[in-house]
Amino acid sequence: MNKLSQKHLLQLFTLLLAALTVSSLFVGSNPIPIVQALLESFSDDPSIFAIILTEVRLPRTLIAVIVGATLGASGAAMQGLLRNPLASPGLIGSASGAALGAVIVLYFGLVSLFSLALPLGGIIGSLFATLLVYLLSGRQAGTVTLILAGVAVNALTLAMISLLLNLAPSPYAVQEIVLWMLGSLANHSLDDLWVMLPGTLLGWALLLGCGRKLDALTLGEETAQSMGINLFRLRWRVFLAVALAVGSAISVTGSIGFIGLVVPHLLRPLVGYQPGRLMTVSALGGAILLLAADISVRLLPGSTEINVGVITSLVGAPFFLYLILKTRRYQL
């Protein structure tokens, strides 16, 4: 893939994302006159349409973009770091750890104490679970070891979440936690966006600039080290970045699986398999995919809206199976 088409790819994705972002503002359970709403949203006495636009659809759209981009870029970074196409925030514990951290915060009602408690819980849980998987699988982990460690840690976090559900004081609290776990972009305010933004932006900033180093890792850890890459620092940087970004994002929206696995995998051939380039493209691709999924959820008929996390898992899980079958041929 030459440089020109690389540029075109980014342009195409940006255009696509812009188009989806605009159409996302148009789609909802009630049709609203967008132009009128837009004009009125700046007035002192906004109409109901303006309120729907600025306080329902806008946050929903922006959150979808940020969460999608976070998951896409984190997946690409993780796969590059571990040189493993099956690594993703969902499989190596980052997402489930974030879920556990968030559930603990919800359970003990820490959100009422300070608003950043939720992302903070997500970040800590995410970092903890990721490190646990990494320590369990060891430095030179093959695909199988890594996945097994991921399975173990995911099971552990799930068990702990179940325990909390079990001990929950009221059925109402249980329902709240379960609904949160299903992963949804609906019913979020701009406040939620502000809550997730610091962590995600910090995570992105840390990931930026890792590209060259992840490229070098293509040649293996020792060669990369001989090329001046401080592996210890790089590992911590990526783990921390993913924990910050995914932890903040997931703690607000609930579990949204498989974006971080599917997107980098699909886009890798388009960037000539270069891990560095893959991160930017995957961020755009993740945002596009999640936004598209969320729009389709809104378009589905029926009185109960299906949570977008359910959709991504329904599509993502078979894709994961396909990946395992494909990988099995030459890697295991």
Partner: peptide, 30 residues
């Protein structure tokens, strides 16, 4: 040091199927 010393390991490999040109280009990273 990485600019001055290059190391060619015995079991050298590439974990992603980069094109040859891109792979060789990695040597300029230092």
């Amino acid at each position: 040091r990485a600019k001055k010393i290059a190391y060619l390991s015995q079991s050298g490999t590439a974990h992603w199927p980069l094109t040859v040109e891109r792979l060789i280009e990695l040597g300029r990273i230092p």
